[in-house]
Structures are given as structure tokens and as C-alpha cells.
Design a protein around this nucleic acid. Structure first.
Length: 880
RNA sequence: GGACAAUUAGCUCAGUUGGUUAGAGCGUCGCAUUCACAUUGCGAAGGUCGCAGGUUCGAAUCCUGCAUUGUCCACCA
């Protein structure tokens, strides 16, 4: 056994430990010996275009905790890692890169070359990120790592498309169809976007109220005058008396030089109180208007093209950019005196989630998934599975969020006009078209569009396992847990559920856990532009991986955001050092007793059959309880609670009390090793590096903590039960000793007695006399006493201060130092507070309804409290 | 406009079927430095649990309303 250094320096050990783990092969479930049951988590694939950030780290901390826990439970454990090609995002990132570094655009490279470069770029980033994940201690099976652009994964994704395309209902409707629909268009990315890829930003706009032409009878309001070039109707509320007479009429108008045909239609969606109560309908550039056009068979006139300019055929406005056209149209209206009102009007601007360019809703030919198809309704099946509790949600409220998403989901636009990503497997020859993975033959041209990224990542749960015939799919699907940021519920969780149900007939995972976002210590969103970023690699360098992992786990609850500052991480760095020093202390004792070798695996036999001290019994009993509570907390996904219980035990009970007592009582090599051995196992999933390092130095040899068995509760309490005194339980008795020590320390501090001065204490102990006598050494040493007199009944010396602990009275003789007046005030304050407490208790117990309705146990408890308080107040009164 | 969350000590947060005088960490204040650890130890101060009602013998906890903050969705042109 080598000697542990004075402080734990994470940097000295982490690399080595990581390599040892990987070399062991135990990250691969096939190499785990003697497994029973299985545990699977197909890890969410981060986007392979950047680096690991704190959000990833937060997820990994939870995933790896569960993985290591289940592996230690002896289950065949698979954490399957991977990376996502992240279509639009990677393309945006790479386009910026080549523009900055080489001053070129993707068009300079051409589709094929651009694709190849971005592929290489993503592989490079994937390698970098994988190294970061390994450094973070993620115990994933890297031999099974997948990438969404791997040919075998793409093949399954394309098969899904073909299968859905060929899914035709009785009316001939396909589950995947191509249609002219209004979609969100980003003119910078030059692609369609799904609804969830659009963000809304508040902006100051103007609302213009005007007439199309002087002879048109209605005035309308808009914040987008340029789109009015494409109006084909004016909608009014059918109940609106002002306009009823016009409904059904058609007007030919000259709108700033452009001829329009405007039909007056009725729609109850129209708000009579907004603006003039009449709404200009622009089917080609507004989702709501488009729906009205469908209902009323209105013609659709496209005004804005894919480059964000006004289409041909609109006279002087053609070719202008949207913003220019707006000014021009307003100017023309003004010249003609048609504007009635112009007011400031804040509204929401839709922007591209990736590049923040304003979105133009426009009509375009795109591929859609029918989410409510007659053959297989994706939304209904998903709703059914969730209502049947086939998936547990953590936190539970996200189940309702998911259900409301399902209810409101619209057909999903899956085509993107970008170059990076798998291409839509549809082929055209003249008027013919067909869906197939490979080209049907000569003369067929493939669709130019690529898939929405989420169409491939939505199938991640089974493509990674080699669906449908792969052994992994048979062994590991569906997985046990899925953990993701709460922000991607609609993007990813929902789509994984519907696509998995469609392809495999099963839900993709049984438990769905959402992490919150990580914010800075002030609660602000972390972003590079704000410069408040906390880079995982910086804080890992500074505090160690274990400290970072703990700070992401403890004080964090599912679905809630976490504010993280360096102070918190430093606190956990201190804790890793504490654990290290606990081990160092125990190592010192073990070395002193050389000859006694103990691997700490089991409760020392001697402890079970021979008398041991109260402290021994207490710590083993507490440890037993902690094993139970921590196991339960992890099983119920309460990782923060589990960590807190362990920390409290380790620091406040083991280090602060038991180790100090071990110094006094001596002869504890076996029991200390058993305790250390056990808490190393319990801590391992939370802080794998420091625990593995201690383990290897003290118990390991060739054996690794990572694959040790998770501790189980020993029936210790039962074994000892026969020999327990009737004076009370082990924990109660020990807490009497603790309270006596604390009371004396407190009296010392209150009276400003220097720690070096040894005190004389008399305890009037009543029936606790024997208990105190047995633990006399502990009290004397921990409270730093010169003399201690314990008697069933003792008088308070005139020059003493006192405290009441249970049925004992503690008198600390302070001859010469005591300020009697001050002591009297202190006691009186305590009596006053106790009096208030007693009044409350009395009132409660005098309440007949309370006594009658409350459970007997509760009433008894209150009575006991009252009796105790009364006894205490009597003793305090005597002391004055 | 709709939904969801949060609101508990100076700060960050626990508090799971309603039942101890509401807890922790950090910070603050006082004291302590050979003896595992100053990345430490000991002690202390600090809260009418956002506000107002209600249910109940009993509410931080359940219900209603309101306020503030945040997130998501929808979007009125």
C-alpha cells in the first residue's frame, strides 16, 4: 500500500484512471462477468460541430451515475454513445467557417465537395468531443459508438421514409406526401424549417390602416403592407353587422398599380375589435390566411420568392427586397392618400432558430409526414402509449407537457433545402416519381432535398442497435432510460416516441428524465456572446472532474434550471479532498496495525458477535440506513437527495464524529475499512475518479471499484437487537452523547473560554448516568475536559453555567470567569422561548378535536414533547 | 392570449402521500493552527416559507384569487 498524499490533486490521477477503465473492457456489456438483468441507456448524440458544454456535462453526470450504479448492481449495462450530424446547424457553422477562413461560400465548392468537407469536419469534431466525454468519465461502450451519418443508420432511416411513403390509406393518401403548403422559410439558410425551428422575438413595428383603392368599401390594417400585393380576399366576422352586406361580393381593385381581385369572405376567427375588423387575406404568406384560402377556395398569389425578394409581375415592386418593398408600398399608398392611420405596434417577429434571420412564411413544395394517418396515426398511438404509462416521466409534470404537444402537433415538414444530411430517397423521371433507397435506374434523378435532422435522430433509439435483425436490438431494445435537456422535448422526445412506435411497435425507452438548463450564478443563460460561459474543461482543470460532476448532481432537480458558480464547485472540490483524507486517516491506522489485512468487504465478524462500543454500533447502524436510503433515492431518480444523504453521512457523521472517536477508542482497523470500503462503492457513481483512485491504493490491486458489487443493507440491527440495553436505541443513545458534547462546546464558546483551557464538568445524569459513564472518554476528550463527574443526582455549583440535555443537566464550573448576570439572562431567554413552545403545545392538546381526529401516534408524540419540555423548563428554573 | 414552472435564511436550493420549535451548502460573525484534512475544526447569528382568502383538529405542503420572475406554445391581420 502506497501512502496517500496530503491533498487530492485530481490532475495527477484522472488520466490514468480513465485509461485503466477503458483498458478493462468493462464499458462493453459483453465483457461483464456474472450479470443478472440488464440496463440500457442509448445516450443522446450531441451535435458533432462544436465541443462538450455544460449542458452535455450535466446530462452525462446523470447518465453515467445511473450506468455505474446499475453496472455495480451486476446488471448487463450498456451506455451507447454517438454523435449527431445536425443538418442545418452544422451547415451554418461550417459555412461561417469557410467564409471566415477562406472567404468562400458553399456554392464555390459545389454540393459534392461541400458535403465531403463538412463530413470530415464533423468527424473531426466528433473525435474531439469523444475525448472530452472520456475525460469526463462517461463509462460508455465506445466500441459501439454511432454517428447519424453512418451508412447502416442512414439505410434504416431511408427505409422508414419509403415505408411511410408507401403507407396509403383507402382514399389514396400517403403517410409521407409532397405538397404545396405554407412553410417557414429562412432566406439565409435557403431552406424550409419546421415549426419548432422558428423562434419569436418581440419587435417594434407599425400597424398601417388603409384602403386598397379609393373605391374599395373596406379599410384594413396590416404590419406587412408589401404582402398585400398577394391578397385575394378580405375576411370579416360573420356576426359583424358593419360588413355583413359585403360577404360574398368580389371587387376588382387597383392596389398601388397592381390589379387585385378581392373576395369578401366570412370567418369567425376574425376579431371584430382588432383594427377595422376586416382582415386582408394573403394566402401565400400567412399560415392563418392560407387555411382560410383552403376553406374558401381562394387563389394563392405568391409575392415573395425564396431569396426574400418580390416576385416578377408586381410592376415597380418586383425584385425589391422585402424591407424595401414595404417602404415603397407605404410610399405609394401615402401618395394616393389611402393611409388612414399609422400606429406603433409591438409584434412578434419570427426568426430562424439557427441564424436569427427573419422567417418568411411562404408556399412551397415540401415533404410532410401525416401525423394522423388512417393506417397508423402517429399522434394517437403516442397518446395511447403515454396514457398507458408505458413511459415514466421525470419530472411527472412533463407528461402533461408531452400530451399537450401531441394534441397540437401539425403535419411535420421533413424536407430541407440544404446540402448536409441524408437526401430524400425519391426519384423522378419525367412525370414519374418513386421512393426507393437506391436509384431505380438510368434517367432517374434524385430529389434535391435533405432530411430534417430530427427525422434521423428521431430514430436513434433503434438505428443504433441494428434494427431490426441485429443482436443488440434483440438484447437491448427498448432501453431503460433516456435523459435529455428539457428544451428538446418537442424536437426529439416526441419524435423518438412516434417513430419508434411506428417502426418497432414499442416505446423507445421506459423512463424519460429531463434535465434543466445550466445557467450562470446570476441565473442568466450561458452564452458565448455574453462572455459568461463556464467551459467544462476550465472548471475540470481547476477543481477536478468529480467536483464538477457533484456540483451538477447535488442541488439539481429534474426539469429545473440550475444556477452554477465556481463557489459551489469549489465546495465539492473540498469534499473530494475530505473523502481523500478520510481514506488517508484510515490508511494510517491500518498501516500502524500492520499485519492486519482487511479488504473491507464485509462487516467484521467480531463486531457482530462480541461487545462493541456504542459509537461502533451507531456508525454501522447509520451506514446501514444510508445504504438503504441512497439506493432508494437513486432508484427513484432523486440523485440530489442521494448525494446529500451520502455527503451528510460522510462529512458530518463519519468524519466529524466517528473518526474522532476512533482516535479515542482505538482498535478500529476492521470496522473503519469496512466503512470506507462501503462508502467508496456508494460514492463511485457520483465521483468515479477519486473513489477509484482510493480503491486502487487501498483495496484494489487488479480489482476495480467500477465493477465491485453495490452494497446491501446488513441485518446488523437485528443481530444486535438482543444485546441492546433497554435504555434506548443505539441512535438515541449516541445522540445523547453528541448533545452533551455539543452543549459543553457551546457553553464554552458562549462564555469565551479559550479552547486550551480544560474545563471541569459535573453532570446530573438521572437514568442516563450509566450510559454517560460508559462513554466518559468520548465526552472528556471531545469536550476537552479536565474532570468529569457523572452522578444520577448532582447539585449545581454556585460558579457554574448549565445546560439541559434530555434528562441530564450539565454544569460547567467556571469559577473566576463566570459573569453571573449574563448567565442569568441567557437562561431566562431560553426559558422564555421554551414557555412559548409549551403554550403552543398545551393549546394543541387542549383542543378536543385535535386529540380526537389526529392519529394516536401524533397525539402521543405531542404529549411526549410537552412532558420533555416541562421537565427541561423545571431544570432550567432550578438553575437560575 | 394560453400553458407550465418558480417564489422558503444575504446567495444557491432541499423539504414525495398535510403532523418535531422549517433544513442543507455557500457566505457572514467569534474562536482555534504540529497530532487525516486550513481544500480544516468548533461555536453562533440569520426565515411571520411572495400576498390575500379558503379547506382542515392541524398548511411551506391541498384549493381559489392576486403579484413578481422565468420558460414554452400560439399569435390579431
Amino acid at each position: 500500500m502506497s501512502e496517500l498524499s496530503k491533498n487530492y490533486d485530481a490532475k495527477l490521477y484522472e488520466d490514468n484512471i480513465g485509461q485503466k477503465w477503458e483498458a478493462s473492457g468493462f464499458f462493453n456489456p459483453d465483457n461483464l462477468p456474472d450479470t443478472t438483468g440488464r440496463y440500457v441507456n442509448v445516450l443522446p448524440p450531441p451535435n458533432a460541430n462544436g465541443e462538450m458544454h455544460l449542458g452535455h456535462a450535466s446530462g452525462y453526470a446523470v447518465m453515467d451515475l445511473l450506468g455505474r450504479y446499475h453496472r455495480m448492481k451486476g446488471e448487463k449495462t450498456l451506455l451507447l454513445p454517438g454523435k449527431d450530424h445536425a443538418g442545418i446547424q452544422s451547415q451554418v457553422v461550417y459555412e461561417k467557417k469557410i467564409r471566415k477562413e477562406r472567404g468562400i461560400t458553399r456554392h464555390d465548392l459545389g454540393r459534392e465537395k461541400f458535403y465531403q468537407e463538412i463530413f470530415d469536419f464533423c468527424l473531426d469534431r466528433a473525435n474531439y468531443m469523444r475525448a472530452q466525454e472520456k475525460e469526463f468519465g462517461v463509462s460508455a461502450d465506445w466500441s459501439r459508438e454511432k454517428f447519424t451519418m453512418d451508412p447502416d443508420l442512414i439505410k434504416i432511416v431511408l427505409e422508414t421514409f419509403v415505408k411511410m411513403y408507401n403507407e396509403v390509406d383507402a382514399d389514396g393518401n400517403r403517410m409521407i406526401y409532397r405538397g404545396e403548403r405554407i412553410i417557414n422559410w429562412c432566406s439565409r439558410c435557403a431552406t424550409a424549417l419546421s415549426d419548432v425551428e422558428v423562434e419569436h422575438e418581440e419587435q417594434a413595428a407599425k400597424l398601417y390602416t388603409f384602403k386598397y383603392s379609393p373605391d374599395f368599401p373596406l379599410t384594413i390594417s396590416t404590419s406587412r403592407p408589401e404582402t398585400k400585393l398577394g391578397d385575394t380576399a378580405v375576411a370579416v366576422n360573420p356576426k359583424d353587422k358593419r360588413y355583413q352586406k359585403y360577404i360574398g361580393q368580389e371587387f376588382k381593385v387597383d392596389f398601388v398599380g397592381v390589379p387585385l381581385t378581392i373576395k369578401i369572405i366570412a370567418d369567425h376567427e376574425v376579431d371584430m375589435d382588432f383594427g377595422t375588423g376586416a382582415l386582408g387575406v394573403t394566402p401565400a404568406h400567412s399560415a392563418v390566411d392560407w387555411e382560410m384560402a383552403q376553406k374558401n377556395n381562394l387563389p394563392i398569389v405568391k409575392v415573395i420568392d425564396e431569396s426574400g425578394k418580390i416576385c416578377a409581375g408586381f410592376g415597380e415592386f418586383s425584385g425589391l427586397k422585402v424591407v424595401e418593398a414595404r417602404t415603397a408600398v407605404i410610399e405609394a399608398l401615402r401618395t394616393r392618400g389611402l393611409i388612414e392611420k399609422e400606429e406603433d405596434y409591438p409584434n412578434n417577429l419570427s426568426v430562424c432558430e439557427r441564424c436569427k434571420t427573419p422567417i418568411e412564411p411562404l408556399v412551397s413544395k415540401q415533404w410532410f409526414v401525416n401525423v394522423d394517418h388512417a393506417n397508423f396515426s402517429l399522434k394517437k398511438k403516442a397518446r395511447q402509449a403515454i396514457e398507458n404509462n408505458e413511459i415514466n416521466f421525470y419530472p411527472e409534470r412533463f407528461k402533461d407537457v408531452m400530451l399537450s404537444w401531441i394534441d397540437n402537433v401539425r403535419d411535420w415538414c421533413i424536407s430541407r433545402q440544404i446540402w448536409w444530411g441524408p437526401r430524400i430517397p425519391v426519384w423522378y423521371r419525367g412525370d414519374e416519381s418513386t421512393a426507393s433507397i437506391d436509384s431505380p435506374g438510368d434517367g432517374w434523378i434524385q430529389d434535391e432535398d435533405t432530411f430534417d435532422t430530427w427525422f434521423s435522430s428521431g430514430q436513434w433509439a433503434y438505428t443504433t442497435l441494428g434494427y431490426p435483425a441485429g443482436q443488440d436490438f434483440k438484447d437491448f431494445y427498448p432501453s431503460d432510460t433516456m435523459i435529455m435537456g428539457r428544451d428538446i422535448l418537442p424536437f426529439w422526445a416526441f419524435r423518438m416516441i412516434i417513430l419508434s412506435l411506428y417502426r418497432t411497435g414499442q416505446v423507445p425507452f421506459k423512463n424519460l428524465y429531463f434535465t434543466g438548463l445550466i445557467r450562470d450564478e446570476k441565473g442568466q443563460k450561458i452564452s458565448k456572446s455574453k462572455g459568461n460561459g463556464i467551459e467544462p474543461k476550465d472548471i475540470v482543470d481547476k477543481f477536478g472532474t468529480d467536483a464538477v460532476r457533484l456540483s451538477l448532481l447535488i442541488g439539481n432537480t429534474p426539469g429545473n434550471d440550475l444556477n452554477l458558480g465556481e463557489q459551489k464547485i469549489a465546495g465539492f472540490r473540498n469534499f473530494t479532498n475530505k473523502l481523500w483524507n478520510i481514506a488517508r486517516f484510515i490508511q494510517g491506522i491500518t498501516n500502524k496495525d500492520n499485519g492486519i489485512s482487511n479488504d473491507g468487504q464485509n462487516i467484521p465478524y467480531s463486531l457482530l458477535v462480541t461487545p462493541s462500543t456504542l459509537a461502533d454500533q451507531w456508525i454501522i447502524s447509520r451506514l446501514n440506513q444510508v445504504i438503504f436510503e441512497v439506493t432508494q433515492a437513486i432508484e427513484s431518480y432523486q440523485f440530489s437527495l442521494a448525494g446529500e444523504k451520502l455527503r451528510d453521512f460522510t462529512w458530518n457523521e463519519l468524519a466529524d464524529w466517528y473518526l474522532e472517536i476512533a482516535k479515542i477508542e482505538g482498535d478500529k482497523t476492521e470496522i473503519l475499512n469496512y466503512i470506507l470500503n462501503t462508502i467508496l462503492k456508494l460514492w463511485h457513481p457520483f465521483m468515479p475518479f477519486v473513489t477509484e483512485q482510493i480503491w486502487s491504493e487501498m483495496y484494489g490491486g487488479e480489482k476495480m471499484l467500477m465493477v465491485e458489487r453495490w452494497p446491501i443493507c446488513h441485518p446488523f440491527d437485528k443481530l444486535r437487537a438482543g444485546s441492546e440495553s433497554s435504555a434506548g436505541s443505539v441512535t438515541d443513545n449516541f445522540s445523547v452523547i453528541q448533545s452533551i458534547v455539543t452543549a459543553i462546546r457551546s457553553l464554552r464558546a458562549d462564555n469565551k473560554i479559550e479552547p486550551v483551557k480544560k474545563l471541569s464538568v459535573i453532570i446530573s445524569a438521572g437514568k442516563q448516568a450509566e450510559l454517560l459513564e460508559e462513554n466518559r472518554d468520548i465526552i472528556e476528550t471531545l469536550a476537552r475536559l479536565e474532570s468529569l463527574a457523572i452522578a444520577p443526582k448532582a447539585e449545581k455549583p454556585a460558579s457554574a453555567v448549565s445546560a439541559v440535555v434530555g434528562s441530564s443537566e450539565v454544569f460547567v464550573d467556571l469559577a473566576g470567569v463566570i459573569d453571573l448576570a449574563k448567565e442569568k439572562i441567557r437562561l431566562q431567554t431560553e426559558i422564555d422561548e421554551l414557555n412559548k413552545y409549551i403554550v403552543g403545545l398545551n393549546a394543541k392538546l387542549a383542543n378536543a378535536e385535535f386529540v380526537q381526529n389526529a392519529p394516536t401516534a401524533v397525539v402521543e408524540k405531542e404529549r411526549a414533547k410537552l412532558a420533555e419540555a416541562q421537565e427541561k423548563i423545571k431544570k432550567l428554573g432550578d438553575s437560575i
